[in-house]
Amino acid sequence: MSNFDMLYNFISGPLFIVAVIVFIGGSIYKIHQLISLVNQKEKFIWRYMSWKYSIRSILHWIIPFASTNWRKRSFMTIMTFIFHMGLVCMPFFLAAHVILINEAFGVSWWTIPDGTADVITVIVIIACVFFLLRRLILRDVRFITTPSDYALLTIAAAPFITGFLADQQCCYYRFWLILHILSGEIMLMAIPFTRLTHMLYAVFTRAYLGSEFGGVRHARDW
């Protein structure tokens, strides 16, 4: 077995399992932590939570252009929706990923056609560059940006950049492949422990604000 094979087997085997465990375990921990904080100190919140208003609020913000602010920032809206769709869908529906899953577990499902996947990848990378430029150029965004925000952008962009380069199969294929898998794993593990937590918390913060606006304030929050 070559060095490459050993490395490949390691990061796509045990390390991958570790990443998934850290991600799932970490996410459960973070959500549990938030909910127990509510129970310990802000129990009153439950009294005001409403399914109806939570869902109403979440829907208005998860659908592109369904809120005033999404409409006011159409370019940002398009970019952010494509970026997030790419981030969530590509890991599950990329043909190359599904083939691996099929080899390992014997199951498989619908995949994104390769051409489309390439386009999505490129758009996600462009979106990352756009986010980077916003952070560097817009004064208000630059003022609130912390070094960790650049780190997170790098973490989110890395699997796409490396994946794209590996896919070109022109040079250093193995190098990019290894980096691709590694960066994907890093991102997975980073979700519960960095600002990427917004993936876990967004639904709760939205639901709470939606419930307050709907049930107490009788006003729209979108």
């Binding site: 938030l34 509510v38 817009l138 912390t146 600002r195 917004h198 709470y208």
Partner: peptide, 23 residues
């Protein structure tokens, strides 16, 4: 003592995007 989940969730969730500036 006095603050809890709300403060934590808000501070952890804000992605520093600046979409609130113009409001």
């Amino acid at each position: 003592g006095e603050t809890g989940a709300r403060l934590k969730a808000y501070m952890d969730t804000c992605v520093h995007c600046g979409l609130c500036s113009e409001t």
